[in-house]
Simulated scan of single mutants.
Amino acid sequence: MNAAATTITRCLHCRRPLRSARSIANGYGPTCARRIRNAAVDTTDYKPHQIASARELIADAAIVPVRGQAFAAVSSDGTETYLAHPTNCTCPAGLKAARCYHQLAARMLLAA
Rank of each mutant, 00 (worst) to 15 (best):
A52T: 15
A70W: 12
A3C: 03
R67K: 12
E56M: 11
I58M: 02
T81R: 14
F71V: 01
C11R: 04
L95S: 10
R15W: 08
C14S: 05
C91I: 08
E80R: 15
T90I: 05
C91G: 04
H102W: 06
T7E: 14
D45T: 10
A40P: 00
S75E: 07
A62C: 12
A25E: 13
L110C: 02
I36P: 01
L104W: 03
R99H: 14
A54S: 04
A62N: 14
I63T: 06
N88T: 14
R10G: 04
E56W: 10
A73V: 06
T79E: 11
A4Y: 07
S20A: 10
I63L: 07
A54E: 06
D77F: 01
V74C: 08
I63H: 02
V64I: 14
T43G: 01
R10S: 11
C91R: 05
L109I: 15
C32D: 12
L110P: 01
N38S: 12
L104N: 03
M108P: 00
E80P: 00
G78D: 04
N2D: 10
P48Q: 04
H13D: 09
A72F: 05
R37N: 13
A97L: 11
I51R: 06
F71R: 03
R34D: 12
I24Q: 12
A70Q: 11
F71N: 03
A61E: 03
A25H: 11
V64G: 01
H49G: 00
A98G: 07
A111D: 09
C11Y: 02
V66Y: 13
L57E: 02
M108D: 00
A72D: 13
A105V: 11
I63W: 04
Q50Y: 03
D60M: 09
A105Y: 05
R16A: 15
K47I: 06
A52N: 08
H13Q: 14
M108C: 03
P65Y: 01
P30H: 10
P92H: 03
A5S: 11
Y46E: 07
Y46Q: 01
P65D: 05
Y46D: 03
K47S: 12
A97C: 10
N26Q: 14
D60V: 02
R22F: 08
Q69H: 12
P30C: 03
E80H: 14
A54F: 05
A4G: 07
A106H: 06
A105G: 08
G68W: 04
I51N: 00
P48A: 09
V74M: 11
R37Q: 13
A59E: 15
S75V: 06
P17G: 05
N88A: 13
A93E: 12
T44D: 09
G27W: 00
Q103M: 15
S53Q: 12
F71S: 00
K96Q: 15
G27T: 10
V74W: 01
Y28F: 15
A111I: 07
V41M: 02
P17K: 09
C32W: 06
Y101D: 00
N88F: 13
A106Y: 09
S23P: 00
R19G: 10
P48L: 08
S23W: 03
A93G: 08
N88S: 14
A59V: 10
A54Y: 07
G78Q: 04
V64F: 00
R16M: 12
A97R: 14
T43D: 01
R35C: 08
